[in-house]
Design a protein around this nucleic acid. Sequence first.
DNA 1: GGCAGAATGGACCAGCAAGTCCAGAAAAAG
DNA 2: CTTTTTCTGGACTTGCTGGTCCATTCTGCC
Lengths: 199, 199
Amino acid sequence: MRTLTAKGAATRQRIIEGTAAEIRESGVLDLTLDDVSARTRTSRSQLFHYFPGGKDELLLAVARLEADRVLADQQPQLGELTSWRSWREWRDKVVGRYRDQGSHCPLNVVMSQLSRTTPGAQAVVAQLIERWEAELAAGVRHMQGTGEIDPALDAGRAAAALLAGVQGGVAILLATGQIGYLEAALDSGLQSLRAGPGR
Amino acid sequence: MRTLTAKGAATRQRIIEGTAAEIRESGVLDLTLDDVSARTRTSRSQLFHYFPGGKDELLLAVARLEADRVLADQQPQLGELTSWRSWREWRDKVVGRYRDQGSHCPLNVVMSQLSRTTPGAQAVVAQLIERWEAELAAGVRHMQGTGEIDPALDAGRAAAALLAGVQGGVAILLATGQIGYLEAALDSGLQSLRAGPGR
DNA sequence: GGCAGAATGGACCAGCAAGTCCAGAAAAAG
DNA sequence: CTTTTTCTGGACTTGCTGGTCCATTCTGCC
């Protein structure tokens, strides 16, 4: 694929997004290239034309798309956690989004389904976690700058704990359908930020 | 399978445990019945003799085994969280176990791999979460009884938050290889127990 | 307008894995 | 001891899925 015409680029994009949607709806386990063909109105050969590496390469492209979407879905709040109010708005946005989406969410797709497919996809996941944590940690540090969070708190560790809670909360939501774990994890994590490091 | 002789029961058990081991090592994605046959020294027809429902039924049996093992691996500490010392021992056991096991752990198998296969497996996961949370909540309530944890704390919610942190910490560990998230989640969660509900 | 390269269609291939079948060995039952 | 049931072996079938191939049609460019 040395050069892509405008039409070609559009087709390629249509394939990626259609595949992502299909996976969100039906999972990656029994996703076939025929499914992708049907949904995206493309022939067999186009799939291999745009993704010479076959299914793996396509899934990797989907993983990148979905990883970006996970963070984008939390904006603008995630990017400016500069007051307790924005923290709360972020918390509500996360809870609301996952409650509504059920299992049809990009995070689930990336973390649980795609990450086991290829090493490349695993790298995408690792990068997602890293970026996510960095944004949370930046928010904590900003609040420490304004004195609203105890400066003695380890911002990195607090962000890590909070992120783990979100991940686990979503995982449990997907497994059991109960939103309470995610809420509890978020509320407890935010409470810790307020409380400071000591007892 | 109306009746099983002693020999038959032993074979059946061998199949389940061999399959579980195989999945822990190589994942469920490309597990074939031939793999199971080879590892457990059983023929094709035995698999269907003992599990008429085929692969799904076998995987469900494995899910039950592994779910039990997840909790058993945390005993005896998980069952008697009656002092800060036992909480700490439990915390260290969890961290140590997952650090050592890497991705070859029953929790990963059950949560990430088997839960997507059948509705039955999903029920097994839901039950695992429920039992796990109940044990944690019981520990919190006991500590409230002895006055070591603020009685105003919502034990159920605290247990839910802690469990979400563990789940997420393990998920991130599997995705990135970093143990820090699990540690941060556990330490932060235990800190919250010590601090009490208010600020 | 014509040519090189890109885009598309769809038939075809090869391999693999779940599940079936039946015959025969082992074990329980009487 | 024989009869009935369970247990075991392995060949076979069937369906599907990723991937290949080549012919045809567009598209952009000189």
